[in-house]
């Protein structure tokens, strides 16, 4: 536990500075390649502009990153979130297309999400299978499960209520952004205003000594995986509602990697322990701001992944402990 508390060593950059700076720099670059990047106007009662696109398109990964942050803080990882998105979306779309009312469809999707999380949690916490392998099972099987629900087709539905989750608006902001904000608030309150956040960090730092100290490590770990899968289910509902159809082959495909990247860019270590929800969300926004910038710039699509890799590398280098030490040495000499 002590390593958790005395963590903020001197000479490091203020917490969050690399992430916020990176986001601002990406915004600036976007503005340079596209001068109307910050332009906003009202369209059908909601704000409309590239900046809003970044928030709106970044929302699903931001929501995934919330759950993923907690899982990674316990020294775990959840590779199945993309597949869970597909399952939840397919469940809700299939039920809606069959004529079930919206609350039933949403509850079923959330229920399926929680069940997936329970499965992951039991594999990791009770059977003590390595998280990477344990969640890999659902990553592979889950997409097949979603394809069984959709029979390999895109299930389209007609429901203004469901569609509003993806493309509606609330207080002039896209609904997806509002949902992400609410999820951030709830997650933050639950982990920071109870002892839960401390338990999670303790499990990540040392699971055995946490158990000796009286932390219910198994229950907390299972709860964390369930929360992560619930976040994935919500993200799945958003992307399904956005295109008014469940595409089991592609929904959430590779998004687990974006979510993990967002968490790591947000400064949370893959070795568990301290975590930051807000910075993970900023990490998700950095990734999306880059995607949007590339689309606006008009570069050939072959460059997309290279540009993305370079920016991510820069953010990670800014946080590297070794480079921080080198910087300190250089400063002392100067």
């Amino acid at each position: 536990m002590s390593s958790v508390i005395q963590a903020s060593a001197p000479r490091t950059l203020p917490k969050g500075l690399p992430q916020v700076a990176a986001l601002l720099i990406v915004f600036l670059v976007n503005w340079l390649v596209f001068r109307d990047f910050f332009a906003l106007r009202l369209q059908d009662g909601r704000l409309f502009g590239s900046l809003i696109d970044v928030l709106n398109r970044g929302a699903p990964v931001a929501i995934l990153a919330l759950g993923m942050t907690l899982v990674i803080a316990t020294r775990g990882i959840d590779l199945s979130v993309g597949a869970v998105m597909a399952i939840a979306g397919a469940t809700a779309a299939a039920l809606t297309a069959e004529g079930y009312p919206l609350p039933v469809a949403l509850a079923a999707a959330a229920g399926v999400g929680l069940a997936c999380g329970l499965w992951n949690g039991i594999l990791v916490a009770v059977l003590e299978i390595q998280p990477f392998v344990a969640t890999l099972i659902l990553m592979v099987a889950g997409r097949g499960f979603a394809q069984l629900i959709t029979e390999g087709q895109i299930i389209t539905f007609v429901s203004d209520g469901f569609a509003a989750i993806g493309s509606g608006s609330f207080l002039m902001l896209p609904m997806a952004v509002m949902i992400a904000l609410v999820m951030l608030l709830i997650t933050h309150l639950v982990v920071r205003y109870t002892a839960l956040g401390l338990f999670i960090e303790a499990i990540g730092a040392n699971v055995r000594s946490s158990a000796y100290a009286g932390v219910g490590t198994k229950a907390v770990t299972i709860a964390v995986y369930m929360w992560c899968s619930l976040c994935a289910a919500i993200a799945g509902l958003i992307v399904t509602a956005d295109i008014r159809g469940a595409d089991a082959n592609n929904a959430g495909l590779w998004l687990e990697l974006d979510a993990i990247l967002a968490v790591v860019v947000g400064g949370t270590s893959l070795f568990g322990g301290r975590f930051s929800l807000v910075l993970a969300v900023i990490g998700a926004l950095i990734i999306q701001a880059m995607n949007t910038g590339i689309l606006l710039s008009g570069y050939p699509p072959e460059y997309n992944l290279i540009v993305k890799a370079i920016v991510v590398l820069a953010v990670l280098l800014a946080q590297s402990p070794v480079l921080t030490a080198v910087r300190a040495v250089l400063r002392r000499k100067a």
Partner: peptide, 12 residues
């Protein structure tokens, strides 16, 4: 080749 990406790219 996906609806989601088609929508996002068209938005931009």
């Amino acid at each position: 080749f996906t609806r989601t990406k088609g929508k996002e790219v068209m938005e931009s």
